[in-house]
Design a protein around this nucleic acid. Structure first.
Lengths: 236, 236
DNA sequence: GTGTACCGCCTGTCTATACAAGTTGTCAAC
DNA sequence: GTTGACAACTTGTATAGACAGGCGGTACAC
């Protein structure tokens, strides 16, 4: 629970923006005013504002202040590493998860062009439905230190289990989105015909100590797929 | 040209990582060592490292140091707001751009669920080919302060023209990726059949002062589409 | 040999201060 | 009225110092 001041300030401001306490298009209080408000130094306030900037909640304009952006976060933040179940909670969707496979297996030798260590892994396949319709098939390999996953946890929130019970810190991921003809097995699950296209999202997920930890291949029905992103211009 | 020290340090380190001078998996010099090396304070070095962390070039591990990640940036960084032409240069692809439309027009009233001001805009449609094959159709509306775009600039790098000649500072964008049946007009350009699916990327691009400035709809041939992303876990 | 306590090195957080640089409004000069 | 200089705001950059907390090796005690 012990969060840093910068995180507390960032969370508080983010909450107030979400609650429209600070309106889109308006300015946040100045950095000096926030220092007085929270009783901290300017450096700390600035770090909080920097994380809001990165999230796309505000835009800082030199000489003016921090403009609150009108950013709908209530869509599919595939960027940002949010799990399917966390999305359901956030969006209030009526979604269900069925575990199709949950057993030890060896992961593929290569994935997204990287060599994968041939350690024993947990193979997890899950079918996601929304409004009764199949929408996504998730195919995961979980590497050590994960030893096994209770099916109940896989049906609820896998990430909450891993971060909460197992004490893992998930840090970052590389993702790739492509569109391909559907694979025979996935055809049935997603209720598609052979030759139809599916959206394939592959990701490599890493822990805070840079350990590779999860390989995921997600098959989405193209008519149900939607990816939203917020991006800042890179100047390096 | 006057760049800040943090930017210079970040650029220098990024270059050395790209040039394998710092190997993937190895540690960067410690913050203190970098302070000595660049003759700056620790705060400055830390800001440079923070931007590398955000880009996915390094991962900081407390008590150890900054681990260099093995991150291939030489793919389609749709996240990150890089233009088609910048990509060509970076990847050395043999690509051409043909301007199909370049004339004043009024933009659509709504786009990505947002109301668009009914100002006069420049309507730009461009066909992108790679290896002789049509790959992407870009459909842009450029809002004021842009008044007109030389066709030559649209065929080269639109962003270089806007940021260089016009002095605009492009800051951030909201994007959406979906898959839809192809529109009749786009069918011909991309060499597809009616009823085929295309990947549609819509984006709203904003300047540093939060002015909306560009609406883009990109139609990609599904077999040529690939989107790569680096994402960090959000904890707010 | 086997712990265990410690120490040195590393990053994370926070503070305080100074100056540069952009924006906006005011007020005086013309 | 228009212009221009200025002052009072804002954020951006850089500095230096202090302490907390995680990691890893060493050396000591048993």
């Amino acid at each position: 629970m012990e969060k840093s001041k910068q995180e507390l300030i960032a969370a508080d401001l983010a909450g107030k923006i979400q609650a429209k306490q600070y309106q889109a298009g308006a300015l946040l209080p100045s950095e000096q005013a926030l220092c007085d408000l929270y009783g901290t130094s300017r450096g700390t306030v600035r770090k909080a504002l920097a994380s809001l900037t990165e999230l796309g909640l505000i835009q800082k304009v030199r000489g003016k202040g921090s403009v609150v952006l009108d950013h709908q976060r209530f869509t599919f933040p595939l960027s940002g590493l949010t799990s399917f179940q966390e999305l359901n909670v956030a969006l209030g969707m009526a979604a269900t998860t069925t575990v199709l496979v949950n057993q030890p297996a060896t992961p593929p030798a290569t994935f997204l062009g990287k060599a994968i260590p041939a350690k024993q892994a947990i193979h997890l396949t899950r079918l996601r439905k929304a409004g009764g319709q199949p929408v996504v098939v998730d195919d995961d390999y979980l590497l050590p230190p994960v030893k096994s996953v209770p099916t109940a946890a896989a049906e609820q929130s896998l990430y909450r289990y891993l971060e909460g019970e197992c004490g893992l810190t998930i840090a970052y991921a590389e993702k790739e989105i492509t569109v391909r003809p559907v694979d025979s097995q996935v055809t049935d699950w997603l209720n598609l015909a052979p030759g139809d296209l599916v959206v394939v999202v592959k990701s490599l997920v890493y822990l805070a100590d840079t350990t590779l930890f999860q390989l995921t291949t997600s098959y989405h029905r193209p008519d149900k797929f939607r990816f939203q992103d917020f991006a800042r211009r890179q100047r390096l």
